[in-house]
């Protein structure tokens, strides 16, 4: 069982990051960290060591795919939730191959985001 304290959100769109935050319960005292591309996301991950990371796939500088690979190599236990607009079967398969089981489609919906968080906490 993991207790979530720190949440990292990696997405190049400011509003997309806002939408994710909007879906996460506000009464749990989570601490949020944000990064606007894959490379910054990796850097932030290493510094912050978040309990859970929300990751977009299509981003400039470094894509989500690459960032996930680096993070997973650095910390195989990393809990990552992919949140993407690209919901073609092929993309989802590719994400699964990286060891990610939770893929949510955009726009995020409160209930599914909460569910994903519960799943990660193993409650």
């Amino acid at each position: 069982m993991i207790t979530i304290k720190k949440i990292l959100i990696v997405d190049d769109s400011t509003s997309a990051r806002f939408f994710i935050k909007g879906c996460i319960p506000k009464d749990k005292g989570y601490e949020f960290f944000e990064a606007s591309d894959g490379a910054k996301g990796v850097e932030a991950y290493k510094q912050v060591r978040p309990d859970v990371t929300f990751m977009d796939l299509t981003m400039p500088v470094m894509t989500g795919f690459e960032a996930i690979e680096i993070i997973k190599a650095f910390d195989p236990q990393a809990a990552i939730i992919v949140l993407t607009a690209d919901i073609q079967t092929k993309t989802i398969e590719r994400v699964n191959a990286l060891g990610i089981t939770t893929v949510l489609k955009k726009p995020p919906v409160k209930s599914t985001v909460e569910e994903a968080l519960i799943k990660i906490q193993g409650i």
């Binding site: 769109s13 997309a16 993407t84 607009a85 690209d86 919901i87 489609k105 955009k106």
Partner: peptide, 16 residues
């Protein structure tokens, strides 16, 4: 930025 994100989502769903 929001419009762009909405477009992104819309086109993602459209391709699928």
């Amino acid at each position: 930025d929001t419009l762009q994100e909405i477009m992104n989502i819309a086109f993602g769903q459209a391709s699928a």
